[in-house]
Design a binder for these strands. Structure first.
Lengths: 245, 245
DNA sequence: ACCTGAACACCGTTCAAGT
DNA sequence: ACCTGAACACCGTTCAAGT
C-alpha cells in the first residue's frame, strides 16, 4: 500500500499544468465562457484561489492554452494525395468539429492569438493544400485566412444560437430555475425575437427568405458556405477551370 | 440669460439614453472593449454609479445598442440598379467601415445578437441583392450569412492585430507607462512572435508564404477574400456563368 | 422621471509565508 | 516546487431614498 505507483484518490494531489487546463475545459463545458472564472476553477480543483497562477501566469494565458488544446489533432494524418479541394474541406470540417467540441469553443478560439502549435499545424496543412492547388504564396496565405474566418464565424454563431442560457446575460443571472426544459437549446426563442422584429414593407427580402434565416441544420448550413468558398477558390485557379478554349 | 433654450454647459444636465450610448462609444474608443466598464462610463458622464441603469437595463443591453448605433446608415441609398455583385461588395465594404469606425467594433458586433434595426437593414439589403441575382430563398439567406461571417471575422482580426495594447491582457495591466511609442499598433510584435514559432521542417508551407501571413495592407487583404466569395456566388448562379454550351 | 448613496456578491492578480 | 491565506483594486447590479 505504501509504494503504490499512482495514488487512487485525486484529493491532495499536486497539480500539473495540463491538469489545470483539462479542468478548465471541463468547467467551460459546465458553465460557459462568460462564467468561467479563475476562482471557480480553483474550487473545481479543490485548491485555493491563487494556486492556478503557479501554472499559468494569467487567465489569458490559460485561455490560449485551452484554445490550442481544443485543436489537438486537427491536422493529423491528412491524406497528402487527396485533391486540394477535398483537403481544404476536410480541414475546415475538422476545425469546425474541434471548435464545437467545447461549449463556446468558437469564441474561445476567436479571442485567442495565433501562434500556438495546433493552430499552426492547422494553418500549415491548409496553406500547404492551397499551395498544392497552384495558388501563389500571397493568395494561399490570404485564402487560408478567408476559410478560417468562415469556419470560426460559423461555429461561433452556431454556439451562440444554441446555448446562451448561461452566457447571454453577463455573469449575473443568479436565480435561474436551472431549466433544462427546451430540447435543443435556445433556437426557437431567437427566431421568435427575429420574426417579431421583421417589418412587412421594410424587410420584404428577409421575410421572403424567412424560414431560412435561422438554420435548424447547422451542418448543411456550414457546407453551403464552405462549398461556396471552395468554388470561389477554384474559379480563380491559374489554369484549371476553363479547358484551354 | 434665464431663458436660454439650451444650457451652455453640460454639467448637471439630465441624460438621455442616446447620451449614454454616445458616451459609451467614445469611451470604447478610448479604452477598448475589455476595459469598458459601467463605472468608468458613469464617471465619464459625471454621474453616480447606478445612474446608467435607468437608461439601459444591463451592460449587455447597452452593448447591443452601441453595436447597432455603429451600423447607422450602412444600408442607406444603395443603388438598386447596380448589378448584384457590386451591391454585395458595396454592402460588405460599408459593414467593414462601420465595424472599423470604433475600437474593437468587430468584437462588439460579434458578441451582439441579431435583430436590431440597422443590422436588419443591412441584412435586408444583402439578401435583396442576392435574391435579385437569382438565388433561391435558402441560398440567398445562407450566402448572406457567409458574407457577413467573413466581414466580421476580418474586421475583428484586423482590430485585434492593430490594437491589443489596452485590451490584450484582461482588465488589469494597471501600471503601464502609457506608451504611444510604436507608430501603427502592435503588428511588428505579433509577426515577430509568429516568426519565432515557425519551425523549418514542421511548417514549410507557412514559411514559404511567410511575409504574407501578417498582412500590412488590410484593405487589399479584405478585397481578396471578398472577391473570392463573390466569385463563388457567381460560379453557382442558376444560369449566368456558362453560356448554354 | 431621473439620479444618489450605499450596499451585495462577485471578479483577476499578487505575494509573503508555509511545506 | 507547489500551494495557502489574505489582501488589493476592481467589477455588474440592485434599490431604497431623494429631487
Amino acid at each position: 500500500m505504501i509504494f503504490l505507483a499512482k495514488p487512487i484518490s485525486e484529493a491532495m494531489m499536486r497539480l500539473s499544468g495540463s491538469d489545470v487546463r483539462a479542468a478548465a475545459l471541463d468547467l467551460l463545458d459546465e458553465v460557459g465562457l462568460d462564467r468561467l472564472t479563475m476562482r471557480g476553477l480553483a474550487t473545481a480543483l479543490g485548491v485555493q484561489n491563487g494556486a492556478t497562477y503557479w501554472h499559468f501566469k494569467s487567465k489569458q494565458a490559460l485561455l490560449e492554452a485551452m484554445a490550442d488544446a481544443m485543436l489537438a489533432g486537427v491536422a493529423d494524418d491528412l491524406s497528402p494525395l487527396a485533391p486540394w479541394d477535398r483537403r481544404v474541406a476536410e480541414l475546415a470540417h475538422r476545425l469546425r468539429r474541434a471548435l464545437l467540441s467545447r461549449r463556446d469553443g468558437g469564441r474561445l478560439f476567436a479571442t485567442s492569438f495565433f501562434p500556438l502549435p495546433n493552430a499552426l499545424a492547422y494553418g500549415e496543412a491548409l496553406v500547404g493544400a492551397l499551395l498544392g492547388a497552384g495558388l501563389p504564396a500571397r493568395d494561399a496565405a490570404w485564402t487560408a485566412d478567408t476559410v478560417t474566418y468562415y469556419v470560426v464565424g460559423h461555429a461561433t454563431e452556431e454556439q451562440l444560437a444554441a446555448g446562451p442560457p448561461a452566457s447571454a446575460g453577463l455573469p449575473n443571472s443568479a436565480g435561474l430555475p436551472d431549466g433544462a426544459d427546451l430540447p435543443d437549446g435556445g433556437g426557437p426563442a431567437d427566431s421568435a425575437r427575429l420574426a417579431a422584429a421583421l417589418h412587412p414593407t421594410r424587410h420584404p427580402s428577409l421575410i421572403a427568405v424567412g424560414e431560412h434565416l435561422s438554420a435548424p441544420h447547422p451542418a448543411e448550413h456550414f457546407d453551403h458556405g464552405l462549398t461556396l468558398i471552395i468554388a470561389g477558390i477554384a474559379a480563380r485557379l491559374p489554369t484549371q477551370p476553363t479547358p484551354p478554349a
